[in-house]
Amino acid sequence: MLKKYSATPYVIWSILFIVIPLILIVTYSLSTKNPINGQLVFSFSNYRKFLELKFINVLLKSVTLAFKATIICIILGYPMAMILSKMEAKLQKKLIVLFILPMWMNFLMRTYAWMVILGKNGFINKLLSMVGLNLNLLYTRGAVLLGMVYNFLPFMVLPIFTVLLKIDNNYIEAAEDLGADKLTVFRKIIFPLSMPGLISGITMVFMPAVSTFVISNLLGGGKEVLIGNLIEQQFLVLNNWNFGSALSVILMIFILVFMAFINKFDKDNDDKGGVGLW
């Protein structure tokens, strides 16, 4: 009885803030506003518009950029998680705090800071000017990518680190006893066992990266338009909630497919007896 009882607030919460808004978005996306009386009329025109206007390109651009950011986060984050997990406990704790410390500051502030660093008269260009160089760093696709990697890297490192920490040392010792070298141990033991952490890291980096609009707005200078920016524009500037909702639904479906794909990976792994993240 208590169990049933205690779940009610969460049920109410999800209905109010997840289910109802979702239904609203889907309804909006499947309708247009009648210009005469302002009533909503059922129509697929928003989705047709998406295909007609070749916004597929923007979606692809967002996905490519988010994909690149995810790969870079893996390349940077995985070794970092390994180094952290092998450290002695005291130092490890300190480093983890240092690592999370920037996240105590507001995400917008940290992104604005990059504008100061990358600007034409910013920190990096001041250094470069000593050797007579001046590069255009800010308001480029590279700057947007940097912003994504910088902001989302902790979400890659932390889950991998947690999983690595939980791997039973006996497995590694057993492998070494059986004559495996370091590379084989990593390939056959550590990497497969860390898959759940890696996968949740990938989801946690890819999802916010593919839908961001703040990073592309600030570091892309309004030139690098991602799907998130298109959605923001429809809602805040062009006052077309219907088309904006359609774009959101398309993005949601896209992320859902991606998640299903990733989860399949995860399942296969579970059967082999991996270490769970939580």
Binding site: L53, K54, F55, V58, V225, L230, Q233, Q234, L238
Partner: peptide, 10 residues
Amino acid sequence: YNRVWTEFKA
């Protein structure tokens, strides 16, 4: 105007 602006942005 909205369409032209969005297409230009994209």
